[in-house]
C-alpha cells in the first residue's frame, strides 16, 4: 500500500492552527486599520486557513501531480472570472475608486 498516511499529530497541529486563526481573525476585525487593510488581513488569514485544510486535511500535499493541476486550474479560472469582471466594472465612472 503506497498511500501516504498523515500522522494524527499533524492533524492535531493543523486543528490548533485553524482554531488560533479563527480567534485571531475575529479579534483583529474590531481594530480600525488604514485603507483596505482590514479586508486584506481577514482574507490573508482565511487563505492561510484554507491552505492548511487543503494541504493536510484534504491530503493535497501528498497527492499526485495531476491532482495539483486540477486544483490549481480552479484558482486559475476563478482569477479569470474576477479579473475580467472587474476590468469591466472598475473602469466605469460610477464605480468607486480607492
Amino acid at each position: 500500500m503506497s498511500e501516504h498516511i498523515v500522522p494524527v499529530r499533524i492533524y492535531f497541529l493543523i486543528f490548533l492552527a485553524l482554531m488560533i486563526g479563527t480567534v485571531l481573525t475575529a479579534w483583529v476585525a474590531f481594530f480600525d486599520f488604514p485603507g483596505p487593510l482590514n479586508a486584506v488581513i481577514a482574507l490573508t488569514i482565511a487563505c492561510i486557513k484554507a491552505a492548511l485544510v487543503i494541504l493536510y486535511f484534504m491530503h493535497l500535499r501528498y497527492s499526485q501531480r495531476l491532482t495539483w493541476v486540477v486544483f490549481l486550474s480552479a484558482l486559475f479560472w476563478l482569477a479569470i472570472m474576477f479579473a475580467l469582471t472587474f476590468s469591466d466594472y472598475a473602469t466605469r465612472d460610477w464605480f468607486p475608486t480607492f
Binding site: T25, A26, A29, F30, F31, N38, A39, A42, A46, A50
Partner: peptide, 13 residues
C-alpha cells in the same frame, strides 16, 4: 472559512 470573515467580520470597525 471565507464566509465567516466576509459576512460577519468586515465592517465591524
Amino acid at each position: 472559512i471565507f464566509l465567516f470573515p466576509l459576512l460577519y467580520l468586515l465592517g465591524r470597525h
